[in-house]
Amino acid sequence: MTTIEVDGLRKRFGPTLALDGMSFTVRPGHVTGFVGPNGAGKSTTMRVVLGLDTAEEGTALIGGRPYRSLSRPLSHVGALLDAAALQPSRSARDHLLWLARSQGLPARRVNEVIERTGLGTAARRRAGGFSLGMRQRLGIAAALLGDPAAIMLDEPFNGLDPEGIVWMRDLLAELAGQGRAVLVSSHLMSELQDTAARVVVVGRGRVIADTSVAELLATASGGRVTLRTSAVPEAARLLKEAGASVNALDGDALTVTGPTAEEIVALLGAHAVPFSEVSSYRASLEEAYMELTRDAVEYRATGSETGR
């Protein structure tokens, strides 16, 4: 099975340290989200993996081999880094046909990816007249052209309408379900939360967190429980006596940390304290991301470092 392995990448652009020991692995069979503030090193990492930039230190391998050693590389890894990277006077079909011929791929494969990406009615139109969403679909068609075992997409949700976002979500799930290694960079945390199984959070050119989405959300949620009760003082007293940390919200709400929701229900029930809601708090991926990258964002804001 093909993996994308990034190990100890260091890269400078003049005085700017863009990558500072970047290391992670994208494994087959699920979508890995790749997130971080602007300038955190996401695009540079992808460019190094694809041989478009050269790192001073470290390795970037696809299926155990550097990109430049791959014969017919589109059959190993498909990528979308810039939806505008095309000849605008060519039709969508001719753009894909040119890529296919460069890789020794049959013309029927062009027809297959055009159909898969919903470009059928626009295939013979000049790509220069496409909207951003249509260019994204064309770039994804190019990434799928060689039926690769690894896929890398940089901000693939950009420019897509709601129907296109649903389509993209389903496509990513399908690609992962087929056993491919899928790396997706995006600023749309809500889409990654619904799509990615793992997430690599980066800042200042290095990995801050590399974990499953479920584990990251559980950590960010912090075991908090929301309690709504008409007997706030009595409920707070009982919970504090039981060792819980209790914070008052507005109105009849409390945030409780320590006991589980089930334990809170049992405690209040045993003392006949009324309540209308006891629910475990679930943080969003956006909240978890903001907490993890707070220092990286502040660091960027000082102007001390700018990367790609």
Rank of each mutant, 00 (worst) to 15 (best):
L192T: 05
L268I: 02
N247C: 14
R169E: 14
G205R: 10
G269A: 06
E215V: 00
R204E: 11
A288G: 04
E234M: 04
A181W: 10
R282V: 12
W167N: 09
T226M: 15
I208D: 06
G223C: 00
I264M: 00
A270D: 11
A266M: 12
V199C: 07
L239G: 05
G222S: 08
A236W: 04
V273I: 08
D250Y: 15
E291T: 15
T195D: 01
V166A: 14
L183V: 06
T293F: 07
R282S: 14
A236S: 15
S280H: 15
L239F: 02
S186T: 02
T211G: 12
V246R: 03
E286S: 07
T226V: 15
A283E: 07
L254Q: 05
T260N: 10
L249I: 10
V256I: 05
L267W: 01
V232T: 02
E234I: 01
A209M: 09
D252F: 09
T219S: 12
V199A: 08
R294N: 15
V199H: 03
A283K: 08
T226S: 14
L227W: 00
G177P: 06
A261N: 07
K240G: 15
R169T: 12
A266L: 12
A197R: 12
S221G: 12
L188T: 08
S185A: 14
V232F: 07
T229N: 03
A288P: 01
A270E: 13
I208S: 06
G251V: 06
L254T: 00
T219C: 15
H187Y: 07
I264N: 01
L171A: 06
T229L: 09
S230M: 11
L183K: 01
A253S: 14
T226D: 14
A176T: 00
V202R: 05
A288V: 07
G205C: 06
E191S: 00
H271A: 12
A270T: 11
G222R: 10
A220M: 06
P274G: 02
S245G: 12
A242I: 04
M290D: 10
L172N: 10
A253E: 12
E215H: 08
T255H: 09
V202S: 10
M168E: 13
L267D: 03
A231R: 09
H187V: 04
V200N: 03
S185P: 11
L172W: 06
G177E: 03
E241V: 09
V182N: 06
A209G: 05
E291Q: 13
V207Q: 07
T226G: 15
A270M: 07
Q193M: 00
K240C: 15
R228S: 11
G223P: 00
V225L: 11
H187L: 03
R169D: 15
E174L: 12
L227I: 05
Q178F: 08
E215L: 04
E263V: 11
D194Y: 15
S212L: 04
L175F: 10
R169H: 14
M290E: 14
L175E: 07
V213D: 01
L192S: 00
A231F: 07
